[in-house]
Design a protein around this nucleic acid. Structure first.
Lengths: 243, 243
DNA sequence: GATAGAAATTGACGAATTGTCATTTTTTTG
DNA sequence: CAAAAAAATGACAATTCGTCAATTTCTATC
């Protein structure tokens, strides 16, 4: 009885996991338009009503996937921000985390962008929305925490009236903006952008340099730091197959 | 006859303009979900079939609006890149152009982001898509042209292997990313970002500083440049009512 | 293991929206 | 003014969402 109950519950949980995984796949490979409730039902070999037993509407499927996505991102950011090294090295580690996130979990990056659209955002449940907002806040807190640490240690001095969060926004938006342009602009190569990942790395280093964030390193040293971070902080996420 | 013909043609053109304007309004004030073909028909006091006489589908309405949007952006960028001053000043002018674009034409900024989604992008006509891509390319060319000018004049030296376009991407994505986060993240104030426009201006200056783009200016001087550019290059776009 | 009640599943259905097209109305042309 | 061309109309088919009453499966108790 106890065992059977657990079995059924587990079955349902398992189905929900399969559902979310399948949703991510469809999203990535076939686009949002193909992600219909009936399609999900077919894929899971069940009836549409059952899908609605899991989620009250389509948007909630996407929001739930987005929660999974941001949790993954948070985990990567966390690893980065807890890594060995001075604040600047940890900031670069966040950069590597972003790169890993975008390259290894493209469906997550995609869904995070999709749910930002009001058409979807507004229809999700309050709870799920708040969860997403709070997780996003935690990501920002992690990064701005590194900025604060740099200020505390004297490595960085911000311009008057600029908060650590506003400095962190520079880093985050440069990275986020570039990767977003990368996945939505069909042919960056044609307009002279050959390696968007390297461009982002260099851009972030230059921005950090512009703020006068110490220790100051040469381009060569920066590049070595990135290589080292990837090996030591994220040894498990191998094979960053750029394009 | 000739006169009547012109009258009718003009009527139709006028309606198309009204349609696009109305679509922009609905998009901005009520969101994408409210922008239905029937709603547009009602607003224009005509039948649904007539709307389909103008556009083959809903996505094409959005793509057409996006073309208007990017043309406006291109015009602003053009004004900026043709302005008086050294390359660095012109780059800052592009920054001001972005700010004006986002603040004064929010529906345009919105629609540019909406059409990037594959669900919409893929359903538009090839022609309209190519038009958008080419206009976007021209925007990028304008900005990277300023970077090239700076290199030519010796004001800027890029790291080995970084193209002018890749440097321009840093600027563009920092700006674009920040403004996108600004309109899609409900409450930036709550997480410590009080003036996103100023944060972007400072962030861009720091990035430019990081690349060592001469002439080097103090924070004070940078701020003065922005004020001056707004007054001299864009005298008509007054009242940048930030929030 | 029989059975009553709870939980989960099902698919037909109503509602909303898209896009079509035969018919009607308006405009242009000869 | 009449015929031809162009434009407008709204009923209709198709798609998808989300609901719900009926049915099946599972759980708990004796």
């Amino acid at each position: 009885m106890e065992a059977t109950k657990t079995t059924k519950k587990r079955q349902i949980e398992l189905r929900e996991a399969r559902l979310l995984e399948k949703a991510g796949e469809i999203l990535l490979n076939e686009g949002l338009a193909e992600l219909t409730m009936e399609r999900l039902a077919e894929e899971l070999e069940t009836a549409k009503g059952t899908i609605y037993n899991h989620f009250p509407n389509r948007e909630e499927v996407l929001l739930t996937l987005a929660v999974k996505a941001i949790n993954k991102r948070l985990a990567l950011f966390d690893t980065a921000s807890m890594s060995q090294g001075n604040p600047k090295e940890r900031m670069l580690a966040v950069n590597v985390a972003c790169e890993i996130y975008v390259v290894h979990y493209p469906q997550y990056f995609m869904v995070e962008n999709i749910v930002r659209h009001s058409a979807i955002w507004d229809r999700g449940s309050e709870d799920r929305r708040n969860l997403l907002k709070s997780e996003e806040g935690r990501c920002m807190t992690l990064v701005s925490g590194i900025v604060r640490a740099a200020i505390a240690s004297g490595d960085l001095k911000l311009p008057a009236g600029i908060s650590p969060e506003e400095m962190a926004l520079s880093m985050w938006s440069l990275t986020y903006g570039s990767y977003l342009i990368n996945i939505t602009s069909p042919s960056l190569k044609d307009i002279g952008i050959h390696d968007v990942y390297r461009a982002v790395r260099v851009g972030c280093c230059k921005t950090v340099d512009g703020y006068g964030w110490k220790p100051l390193w040469t381009e060569e040293e920066h590049a070595q730091k990135f290589t080292k971070i990837r090996e030591t902080v994220f040894p498990d996420e191998k094979g960053l197959s750029h394009e």
